[in-house]
Nucleic acid binder design. Structure first.
Lengths: 233, 233
DNA sequence: ACAAGATTAAAACATGTGTTTAAATCGTCC
DNA sequence: GGACGATTTAAACACATGTTTTAATCTTGT
């Protein structure tokens, strides 16, 4: 099926073919995440990978199939780096919710966690033909595990109420991915004194504090607990 | 300052100059909203406006300044079509929150309400040089009015807690703009039977139901009320 | 009616894109 | 060592883009 006819049983640990293919995938993840599918140029990707401009077309066929493979690689590595927390792993559904939120927020906003979050956001902003694949492979399982947690937290409500609450939870997280450019622009504006005095300054927070806040806010919204009054210790 | 040296005191109600300039702005709003700044081509915009390919450069200088003017026009028309609900207009802060949410959701997701919501989302997904302008002119006032409402609803909390809650409220709304392509793709997938049986089907809801849900969820999250148990009548 | 200026129109320019082609290079096996 | 296939390289192709240019057309004031 595949075209790996040569260098199959070689004694060398890292064959050259996988070398540049791997470098292309790495560069593709970076640049597709930075610039999006349309704005990322094959020449730029090949340049960062230290390969010729025709390397992508040789190894992957065309830009679209290369992009699809980049998405698949992203998904695979993100999920094997840290598996998604499931309801069955916890005694209390509230703990499962907090763990899920921490996992989701990290994937979305922490750069070191891989570019899957950025690529998902880009695919939502302007979809390509690879959106269906991304939904089936990445998004649906994430939402499925969260739905189990939400269902355990509100067992007496019907599916539509659960879906609305699930979306309220997910929306709070997605905000911190989509608003990142706004944060940066606000920081820039506030340094140059271009902000009106009355405007409330929105600030970035660490993932742990975010997960704690969204957990409390959502548990209250779901009707599980009354929100704690604390916050400033 | 401006270059309107001719046709100034004409008796004609709709001078030709404003005709094509207005048509260009209209087509620009549509196509920039559909395809984003980079992917929208000047030729396509001029074609939809029934103008020559050089019309944009003649009337606005270049693509960037044209885009900035489109954003400004969008903002102006969206806000004069329906003013933003303010805290002072309501007796109860909860009513103000519900009205604000309804206004924000409509701007974000209802096509007839103008393309400002789409353009804001696009500018967040991959920013251009016009993001600062959009923040100062459109986003900051929206968030300012919401902050007043949130502050009235949680008078005993500090600014950081209020900001976190504000972002939780905004995130729930933004979800329904950013997830729209996912909704459409899910609908397509479910019709072709490509969805696994266990996957929870996320459905679109009307703006009024959304506003009600987010109001209840958020009031509970803010610690104002315990969420009602009802939902299915 | 005429002339001046604003507006349109068509064509060309420079540039960047994805992709293909053809030759050169490399690695491996007989 | 030499030959064969996989890989890399450089060049070219076809096309789309934003912008500029030049001439034509329209509008208006006198």
């Amino acid at each position: 099926m595949t075209k790996t006819t040569a260098l199959e049983g070689s004694t060398v640990e890292a064959p050259k073919e996988l070398q540049t293919k791997e470098r292309l995938l790495q560069a593709g993840m970076e640049i597709f995440a930075e610039r999006g599918f349309a704005d990322a140029s094959i020449r730029q990707i090949c340049s960062r990978a230290g390969a010729n401009a025709a390397a992508v077309n040789y190894h992957f066929g065309d830009k679209q199939r290369f992009y699809a493979e980049v998405l698949a690689t992203c998904h695979l590595r993100a999920w094997q780096r840290r598996p998604i927390p499931r309801l069955a792993d916890f005694d209390e559904p509230g703990d499962a919710l907090r763990a899920w939120l921490r996992w989701f927020l990290e994937m979305l906003t922490v750069d070191g966690a891989g570019p899957l979050g950025r690529l998902m956001a880009r695919e939502m902003a302007d979809p390509t033909t690879a959106l269906d694949q991304l939904i089936l492979r990445s998004m649906a399982p994430m939402m499925g595990t969260l739905y189990e947690i939400v269902a355990a937290l509100m067992p007496h409500r019907d599916g539509e109420a659960r879906n609305l609450c699930l979306q309220s939870v997910v929306g709070q997280c997605l905000f911190y991915r989509h608003a990142q450019p706004v944060f940066e622009s606000l920081e820039r504006l506030s340094q140059s004194g271009g902000l009106p005095p009355g405007a409330p300054l929105i600030l970035q927070v660490e993932v742990d504090r975010l997960a704690d806040h969204i957990t409390q806010f959502s548990l209250a919204g779901l009707g599980v607990t009354a929100p704690e009054d604390g916050g400033s210790p």
